[in-house]
Design a protein around this nucleic acid. Structure first.
Lengths: 152, 152
DNA sequence: ATTAAATCGCAGTAAATTACTAGGAAATAA
DNA sequence: TTATTTCCTAGTAATTTACTGCGATTTAAT
């Protein structure tokens, strides 16, 4: 039940763009340095975000990336799903929403009920958190930032 | 963000015990056959559940396992945490509740806010689902059980 | 007393996934 | 023309997952 570095780093990169690419695009090397993430790894993550229409790029020197939408239009769920795939705790079409398959033993189906409830609660949370909210939140905590936690 | 087979199989095993070990303990080979899980793998999972006080065992022939508590006293969260470790989407003490560390860059801390909200919503859900509820639910759906989904 | 059925415990291992790195092509501002 | 940047694909070491195997111990039934 862990997010990978794709989701963790990718979300940080998007937040970084939201904060620093307001007027001009910022280069990945800037983001990479600020966020302490390798450039070539970031390139792979940002490629997915671009393909999904979350960020946009301008090529060539002095180019870089910026958000493709307003911060209030980009949900955390959208970002994480692009980077991690489905956030469902199991790969089961009946849980993810596609298809209406049932399982063979009765308690298989009961677990499906469990997975669906977990899935729904995760989605409710991430689909209703928008970048704009995170930017506001970052204003609040900016002052008392002290120590890096490895997992964050 | 996926549960492993430990959590998936283990929960199924506990539900199986709740359904079939009401008067006498049931052997792991019975559980394994009903749930289509290898015995030796199940042994490892059940060992954790026993250590955590969720199931109890009687050794020797005609022995087996049964629940150590009433179904209304065992939450899905308890079971999954024993098998999977923390359900937090990141390993960050500030998210898991231990310690009050802050992160170095301001947007590191914003992601912490995100992880905490996801963590809370998962925990709210699983800590408030009890085995008793699942048993009731399994009565409902028992009749129209048809097909096995690989991920379930 | 012996046997068969079970739990218990630990070690090993193939396959998959993760978290990167490497190298180079193409575009563009200066 | 050159430096800076995005873009694209492939490879790979380390870790994790999902098991299997073996053997010891306990105990009910014969």
């Amino acid at each position: 039940m862990k997010l990978t570095t794709k989701g963790r780093y990718g979300l940080r990169a998007v937040i970084d763009l939201a904060m620093y690419a307001k007027t001009e695009p910022v280069s990945l090397s800037d983001v990479a340095e600020r966020q302490n993430i390798s450039i070539s790894y970031l390139e792979q993550l940002i490629a997915k975000l671009k393909k999904a229409g979350i960020v946009q790029s301008t090529r060539g020197a002095q180019g870089g990336y910026s958000l493709a939408k307003e911060p209030e239009e980009v949900s955390v769920g959208e970002i994480l799903r692009v980077l991690e795939g489905s956030l469902s705790p199991v790969d089961c079409s009946a849980v993810d929403g596609e298809g209406e398959t049932e399982c063979s033993a009765s308690n298989f189906c009961v677990t499906k009920y469990v997975w669906k409830r977990i899935n729904d609660s995760i989605n409710d949370t991430v689909n209703n958190m928008f970048l704009s909210e995170l930017l506001e939140e970052s204003e609040k905590v900016k002052s008392d930032a002290i120590k890096v936690e490895p997992g964050c």
